Simulated assay, not measured.
Amino acid sequence: MTQGILFNTEEPPGRRDAPAQALSPGAWLLPGLVHDRAGVLLSIISDIVRRAPLRHMATPGGGRMSVGMSGCGARVWVSDAAGYRYETHDPRTGRPWPPMPALLRDLAGECAQKAGYARFVPDSGLINRYGPGDRMGLHQDRDERCDAPIVSISLGVAAVFLWGGPTRAAPVRRIVVRHGDVVVWGGASRLTWHGIAPLLLAHHPLCGDVRYNLTFRLTA
């Protein structure tokens, strides 16, 4: 486990009113965009994981993902020895994934609109739960439709978002994402390599030492 406090729990003054920041063509960081709706979002997350508990999925190579995962919608991304894919049913229970609440669907569309992507209606919402030391290696999102954007919402402890380029060897930028921040990417940046650096030990008044990430995609 990584030690030490990485970020203050207090947000920088004026952050919620900060302008959108371009990360690359078609990719934007929207600081604090959903900050004021965080309480409702965390309540929805709690309800979803009550019905589809978080789990640490296996990778095709036999490893174990450090991040706890669940999701909602018509299809949710899963990983196991058979590979990466989207499934309509929770492999653990055999039941359909919880339906995506209208509030989440509409909020994802609103965030996409802010980044210049009109009429985005996701059919998949992935929940990632990061504890101290958890990480997400650099990867591309290739298992869903690439003609639609991805909307990523951060809640809880701040993290370092790794933003690369179109190839695995491209230089990687380290971008702090805080509670209530949203990152949206599509178009020319849709297949950008990205990830999350190991989460350092910190505290957030609503989430303790945890970061939640809500990611919305169109899969069909």
Score class of each variant (00 low, 15 high):
Ser124His: 00
Met69Ala: 08
Pro166Cys: 00
Val78Tyr: 07
Val176Ala: 14
Leu199Val: 14
Arg129Pro: 01
Pro205Asn: 06
Gly187Trp: 03
Ser24Met: 07
Val121Phe: 10
Trp77Arg: 02
Ser66Lys: 01
Leu29Lys: 14
Ser24Thr: 08
Pro99Ile: 08
Leu107Cys: 09
Ala108Asn: 13
Gly133Ile: 04
Ser79Tyr: 00
Val157Gln: 10
Pro166Ile: 07
Arg50Gly: 12
Gly68Glu: 12
Pro19Arg: 04
Gly180Thr: 09
Asp90Glu: 11
Asp181Phe: 01
Ala115Arg: 09
Pro171Gly: 03
Ile44Val: 15
Arg15Met: 12
Met57Arg: 11
Pro53Cys: 02
Gly63Ala: 03
Thr192Lys: 03
Arg168Ser: 12
Gly165Ser: 02
Arg85Ala: 11
Asn128Leu: 10
Met136Asn: 07
Gly68Thr: 09
Ala115Trp: 09
Asp80Pro: 01
Cys207Ile: 04
Ala58Thr: 12
Phe216Trp: 07
Ser154Gln: 09
Leu107Met: 15
Tyr130Arg: 00
Cys207Ser: 14
His35Ile: 05
Ala188Phe: 07
Ala169Ser: 15
Cys207Leu: 00
Arg211Ile: 11
Tyr130Val: 11
Met100His: 00
Ala170Gly: 06
Arg95Leu: 08
Cys146Asp: 14
Ser152Thr: 05
Ala112Val: 08
Ala159Lys: 13
Val34Thr: 15
Arg135Asn: 03
Gln3Lys: 00
Thr93His: 03
Ala169Thr: 15
Gly26Val: 01
Asp47Cys: 03
Ala112Cys: 11
Gly68Leu: 03
Ile48Tyr: 04
His139Lys: 13
Ser189His: 01
Ser43Ala: 15
Trp97Lys: 12
Leu214Gln: 07
Leu30Asp: 10
Gly83Ser: 06
Gln21Asn: 02
Ser189Leu: 09
Leu199Glu: 02
Gly164Phe: 11
Thr59Ile: 04
Gly156Ala: 07
Thr59Gly: 06
Ala159Glu: 06
Pro149His: 10
Leu107Thr: 15
Ala108Met: 09
Arg51Cys: 08
Gly14Glu: 13
Leu200Thr: 11
